[in-house]
Design a protein around this nucleic acid. Sequence first.
DNA 1: GCCCATTTGTCGCGTCTGCTACATTATCAA
DNA 2: TTGATAATGTAGCAGACGCGACAAATGGGC
Lengths: 191, 191
Amino acid sequence: MPSHLRQARPSSDAKRSLWTAQLADFALESGLGGLVLRSAADRLGTSDRMLLYHFKTKSDLVAAVLDNISERQIALLGAPDPVERLAPGVLLSRAWRVVRDVRFVPFMRIWTEATVRGTRGEEPYRELARRTTGRWLTWIESRLDLPPGAPRREAAAAILALLEGATLLEMSQPGSATGIERLMAAALDGA
Amino acid sequence: MPSHLRQARPSSDAKRSLWTAQLADFALESGLGGLVLRSAADRLGTSDRMLLYHFKTKSDLVAAVLDNISERQIALLGAPDPVERLAPGVLLSRAWRVVRDVRFVPFMRIWTEATVRGTRGEEPYRELARRTTGRWLTWIESRLDLPPGAPRREAAAAILALLEGATLLEMSQPGSATGIERLMAAALDGA
DNA sequence: GCCCATTTGTCGCGTCTGCTACATTATCAA
DNA sequence: TTGATAATGTAGCAGACGCGACAAATGGGC
């Protein structure tokens, strides 16, 4: 096997994944708009030239970064094993606590941003936002305790919509979403 | 009074507001990202030079366009006089029908986009998104029929969050928000 | 130690975008 | 009519941005 077809040197992969993680930090604090080759490279102490060398294209870089973010997010959400199932209102309250945590807010913002960019067909945002939404819905649905026959997907979508909508509200008017979850949780489980 | 302090010629104002309306159409169909001086000018059959002449700066142009959009939106929502008050679930169902209408979806998207841009402090998006959210909350709150002592603002915020969250869901995964409103309306009024 | 692929540095091209400088025409007041 | 002001056209600047060209250095396998 000719050497140029072998795996790239381990140092290369290591650097790539190290950079990916650092770029994810950067993106989480400055938004997708801040993810510009030159400034990102400065931040890493390298050059845009090097970023392109390791990531081939900016789109690839963004995809890598968003993947990294998506993974971290799942880790933050946590998956206690065995999974316990909760009534919709209780699940909403729990999810709310996680999602409105200062450490988690940047993640919500990033996905909102990615969704907006994706809406106009811009890749890789469109596809990544789609996948992430699907992952969320599945995550919520699998933890829902509902009577058989109840519309699981709709319930999951309702909870997710509420969480994302609250994020949007907080983005435009901080504080305006306070207390929503108590009201909605009561309504969901009270019926 | 020196003539250069007098009102600009009527033709100027007329052109400005005509252009504002046309630019609003443009923005609604192509998003805020499509609002670029050169392409917008092409669309109007003029030049970027002229846009800046009439609007002074792009930020002013965007502000004018978003104001126009905000006004149209209120008109679309309608304000039956005298205002009838509705139970939260009923109000949600009604608002849902309006907001998910094909003609209204572009408005939701624009505000989502403006909110995202505003989050990083970019003006005039930040302030305009803030104001519009406030207007929405007031609109909803004033139409809510709730027992005295009930948290009106929270209820309004919950409904708005659901509507905006559903918009976001539909943006990333068309169809995923279908049926949410029935479920939530039942929960809200059922308790 | 030598060869060659990997890795990095330097430079700048091509494009987009908001905005300006400057000249020219159109329009109204005196 | 004339002179000032408004309105429009032409050209291009300056900065941001993704990306490519080219050559130098670096380091591991023979």
